[in-house]
Design a protein around this nucleic acid. Structure first.
Lengths: 155, 155
DNA sequence: GTTGAATGGTTGACAAGTCAACCAAGTGGG
DNA sequence: CCCACTTGGTTGACTTGTCAACCATTCAAC
């Protein structure tokens, strides 16, 4: 049972609906989900006073250079981050959060948390862990270089 | 501890990577994933000689009118489906598969199956069922009309 | 029978991504 | 020192989706 198409379809529509919900929640802040994701990441992952480059965001968020560039761009336009050129490497930026960003931090976290809680209503913590593990496995299956070249192993 | 961001990030990147894999597999057929999804659905779900309207596709695939319109459009352009105006309701179409579509049917199914098998390598059937059930629950949580207005039920 | 709402589709403007081509700044031989 | 390669970031063209405004046809109600 549960054919490919059913799962695939469900996965896709869940993806879209979640994004839509996130989008509508973020709307009052004037942010879209792309910006929201980046901003939240910066808020949560980058310790006080530190800074990251876009390159690092690419890695950490697993999103293409281009997408990061544009997201940061609009975040900068909206005065949530500033791009300072790095002194020791003038190609790279040091992305820093503005006070405006700091100010909405709690609200942003609240929003994401709310969406999350709504999603997992009635779901056991343990089930979520399993789901998470499963998704990681699947992601790994895909990252395993296309051809099964031989005896790969894993952690 | 599997924060929201981790799960959300993983979910998103899994979504993208899967789409990319599908896209690259479909490329030789000259199809994108959007077209592929629609075409596969038509092939599998619509019995010989029957036809569907775009409206029905909207429901069955849970994708907006607009997206369906465009997908069908390019499918028609590529000669995989024909749109015949319905006699009894000239607004609606009867979408029918062309011989060209029939011809690639096995290949298309093979492709989707391959992607699927690659995804679930090393995953128990049972785990997939659980995942599926879980996703359905989450989808339901979201579809529950924003505010918990009272005692909604469903079929 | 005309008029007005519902229904099926199309289209334009936008969001969020991809990839590939590009520029500018660093880096490392020769 | 210079030239070629790498690396960080930007940009344009494209994909896949959304929503909202629109057109045409059908239906239903008066």
């Amino acid at each position: 049972m549960t054919s490919i198409r059913e799962i695939w379809g469900l996965y896709n529509s869940l993806f879209r609906v979640t994004r839509q919900v996130a989008n509508s929640q973020l709307e009052p802040l004037g942010l879209g989900s792309a910006e929201g994701n980046v901003l939240l990441h910066l808020l949560v992952e980058v310790p006080q006073g530190r800074s990251v480059s876009q390159e690092q965001l690419v890695e950490q968020l697993d999103i293409s250079k281009g997408a990061i560039s544009r997201a940061v761009d609009s975040l900068a336009q909206k005065d949530y981050v500033v791009r300072k050129r790095r002194e020791d490497d003038k190609r790279a930026y040091r992305l820093q959060l503005t006070p405006k960003a700091m100010a909405i931090a709690p609200e942003l976290e609240r929003i994401y948390n709310e969406v999350y809680l709504r999603a997992i209503e009635g779901v056991e913590q343990e089930e979520m862990e399993q789901l998470f593990a499963l998704m990681r496995r699947i992601a790994k299956n895909f990252s395993q270089n296309t051809k099964s070249s031989g005896g790969e192993d894993d952690a």
